[in-house]
Design a binder for these strands. Structure first.
Length: 276
DNA sequence: ACCTCCCTGGCC
DNA sequence: GGCCAGGGAGGT
């Protein structure tokens, strides 16, 4: 389930391969994958023949800039991953979008559940879409504690839901929301507005530590191997997770049995002993 | 701010 | 054969 550390790991792998390359081919095997594009045929048309200028990211959205002022957006969704392969390599199942480069390499977007998407948008189109309403990037641009505290003021929703709200802060998904709350010792059920400034400061520190550590280990590949690095390696943060997937096991900090329950339709794993 | 839907592989 | 995983959009 790719979220920010997985997407940033992907971005770093793509950057040297894509930058300055010419797009020589675009194949959309699953038309559904092209979304937020007023005219679906614009995707291939705007991509073909373009040179790639830079490979950026905001939250979980990969944003690749093309020379003609077009932004090629890729979102991995739930089950998406990017594979870099030679154009004549075997194509694995669910290679829904393939972008070929003048280097002889392919960018292959593999996504069984097709929750991800691609689009090629003008800056105006990007700004007008939901991507224009993303919060600050959780890894590179996380607001200071005072600002975060102000953003949370008066919010009744549980912290778990607020961390997943991409318009508040962009990039945190279900796994790392649980991880950050555990590190900070904050219950996922606490309402946003109930957090004191020192708790927000602890949470901010926990978010940064979680994301930076997960990134260092290449993100978390789960048993389903839906997420892999673009070269096929697994993300190795999985067995370092402190909360996610550890229901019924003992908390690594206080020994209490970890519990899992549903908060706002999302599974949440947390420690009732030390998350208060 | 809440509810429903999208989609498929893997597991019981 | 049914359920579960869940990020984000669209509707109310």
């Amino acid at each position: 389930m790719p979220e920010l550390p997985e997407v940033e790991t992907t971005r770093r792998s793509l950057e040297p391969v894509l930058t300055s390359r010419l797009i020589t081919g675009v194949t959309v095997a699953r038309p559904r994958m092209v979304r937020r594009q007023a005219n679906p045929e614009d995707f291939s048309r705007r991509m073909l023949g373009q040179r790639i200028m830079s490979v950026g990211r905001h939250g979980k959205f990969l944003m690749t800039t093309l020379e003609d002022d077009i932004i090629w957006v890729t979102h991995l969704g739930m089950s998406g991953r990017i594979s870099l392969a030679a154009t004549d390599d075997d194509v694995v199942a669910h290679s829904n979008v393939i972008v070929s480069l003048d280097s002889g390499e392919d960018f292959r977007f593999i996504d069984p559940r097709t929750f991800g998407f691609v689009a090629a948008l003008t800056p105006e189109e990007l700004q007008a879409s939901s991507m224009g309403r993303l919060g600050r990037d959780a890894l590179t641009d996380l607001p200071r504690a005072k600002q975060l505290h102000a953003l949370l003021a008066g919010r009744q929703a549980p912290m778990k839901a607020l961390l997943l709200d991409q318009s508040l802060v962009a990039g945190i998904g279900n796994i790392y929301a649980d991880e950050a709350l555990h590190r900070a010792g904050i219950s996922p059920l606490r309402s946003g507005g109930s957090l004191q400034l020192d708790e927000v400061a602890a949470l901010r520190k926990a978010i940064r530590a979680t994301l930076q550590h997960a990134l260092k280990y290449g993100g978390s590949s789960l048993d389903d191997l839906a997420y892999l690095l673009p070269d096929g390696r697994t993300g190795e943060y999985t067995n370092r997770l402190r909360a996610y997937g550890r229901e019924g096991e003992h908390c690594r900090r206080c020994g209490t049995e970890m519990v899992k329950n549903i908060i706002r339709d999302r599974s949440s794993t947390w420690c009732p002993g030390c998350q208060t």
